[in-house]
Simulated scan of single mutants.
Amino acid sequence: MTPAVTFTNVTRHFGTVRAVDAVDLTIAEGSFFAMLGPSGSGKTTCLRLISGFEQPNAGSIRIFGEDVSRTPPNRRNVNTVFQDYALFPHMNVRDNVAYGLMVKGVGRSARYAKAEEMLALVKLDAYGDRKPGQLSGGQRQRVALARALVNEPKVLLLDEPLGALDLKLREAMQDELKALQQRLGITFVFVTHDQGEALSMADSLAVFNNGRIAQIGTPAEIYGQPRTRFVADFVGSSNVLPPALTQTLGGPARWSSLRPEALRLTAPQEAPLAGPVTSLRYLGSGTRVTVAAKGADIGVFLPAGHPVPATGDYTGIGFAPGALHVMDEA
């Protein structure tokens, strides 16, 4: 099967800044792929390179096998949903959705019929006559999705489209986006700085840092087997241990990672790590306990209902042998 998107040694620089630095990337057809990273890591520039809003200084970009490195945006079979949705405020919802078909010269009745079909797909079929200003944030996001999908793109690009929504609505839209992608079967490329969004929605993801891909894999691989300190620190919450401490715990002299939820509090004399509790942080679903052990602050997540020690208590920390993940990074 031909990949939906392929980057081969792609570089994009702005003056002396290498926003994207020799990136190789393959995105499978029909997948939900996430690009995750902090601001300035290169993820959004990669999305703009796929859309054609930016051109590479070096390397090649292929969409379903066709080299589009110098192809203008309007000749690529992709569409973009932007963070601010970019809806036309003077047009009603139906005309906003049908706009791309109007530009293509599709007749009024045909484009309206297609627009209504897309509005039904995103559960807004009763909202065609309203203006964007009369809609909630979640509804405007759905209109932007319908407008992008009406042109039947082979790749849909989503540039942090949930960033402006409140937490509950964002979580609901995550479920809706994933369900929509599975129903349509087209390739979604989703840019976000939110680890929870990437891990919960994507089939696979790339973690970006300083214009390069630090790691690519499934959510389980990225979370459970980080290759570098950056990935361990950035994706979720982790205890990143230096080589000397890793060695005392039975591993090689390399950096390692211990996820807080993989740890348990136990009697000090039975534990490989022990020390005083220095802080408690209530999180609703549980409590994060910080223990000063062997020169490091070790975070332990206790699910709700578990006994919580007091600050200053001396406790041990235990874990199963497989919980200690030794990273590739020397």
Rank of each mutant, 00 (worst) to 15 (best):
Phe190Lys: 02
Ser238Trp: 02
Ala22Thr: 10
Thr218Cys: 13
Leu158Gln: 06
Thr71Gly: 06
Gln83Ala: 07
Gly299Phe: 01
Phe14Val: 04
Ala214Leu: 04
Thr11Ile: 04
Ala126Val: 05
Ile222Asp: 01
Phe190Trp: 09
Ala179Tyr: 05
Asp297Gly: 12
Val106Gly: 00
Leu205Val: 06
Phe234Tyr: 13
Asp84Gly: 04
Phe32Lys: 06
Leu157Pro: 02
Leu145Glu: 09
Asn96Gln: 14
Gln55Phe: 15
Leu87Glu: 09
Phe33Trp: 02
Ile317Lys: 02
Phe230Ser: 03
Gln55Cys: 12
Asp297Ser: 12
Gly138Ile: 01
Gly250Arg: 11
Ser200Lys: 10
Gly312Arg: 06
Cys46Met: 10
Thr315Lys: 03
Val191Glu: 02
Leu158Tyr: 08
His306Phe: 13
Leu36Trp: 01
Thr187Phe: 05
Gly100Lys: 12
Phe14Met: 08
Met35Phe: 15
Ile213Val: 13
Gly299Arg: 11
Ile317Arg: 00
Tyr282Leu: 09
Asn209Phe: 00
Gln195Pro: 06
Glu270Gln: 15
Phe14Ala: 06
Asp297Thr: 04
Ser237Gln: 12
Lys131Val: 03
Val103Ala: 12
Asn151Trp: 00
Asp159Thr: 06
Glu197Pro: 01
Val106Leu: 09
Thr192Lys: 07
Val289Trp: 00
Val291Gly: 01
Leu145Val: 06
Gly137Phe: 07
Val235Pro: 03
Thr16His: 08
Ile222Asn: 08
Val291Lys: 00
Ala34Cys: 12
Phe82Glu: 12
Ala320Asp: 15
Pro72Glu: 03
Thr315Glu: 03
Val207Phe: 09
Asp159Leu: 06
Gly105His: 08
Ala146Asp: 12
Ala148Phe: 07
Phe234Ala: 08
Gly250Glu: 06
Gly59Asp: 10
Gly30Gln: 06
Lys154Gly: 03
Ala296Gly: 08
Gly185Pro: 02
Arg130Asp: 01
Pro321His: 09
Glu152Cys: 04
Gly107Val: 07
Ser204Arg: 15
Gly40Phe: 03
Pro3Phe: 03
Asp297Leu: 08
Leu47Trp: 07
Asn77Arg: 01
Pro3Glu: 05
Asp175Lys: 13
Val155Cys: 03
Leu205Asn: 00
Phe188Arg: 10
Val106Lys: 10
Ile216His: 10
Met91Ile: 15
Thr16Pro: 04
Glu329His: 03
Val150Pro: 01
Val326Gln: 14
Ala202Leu: 08
Pro89His: 07
Thr266His: 05
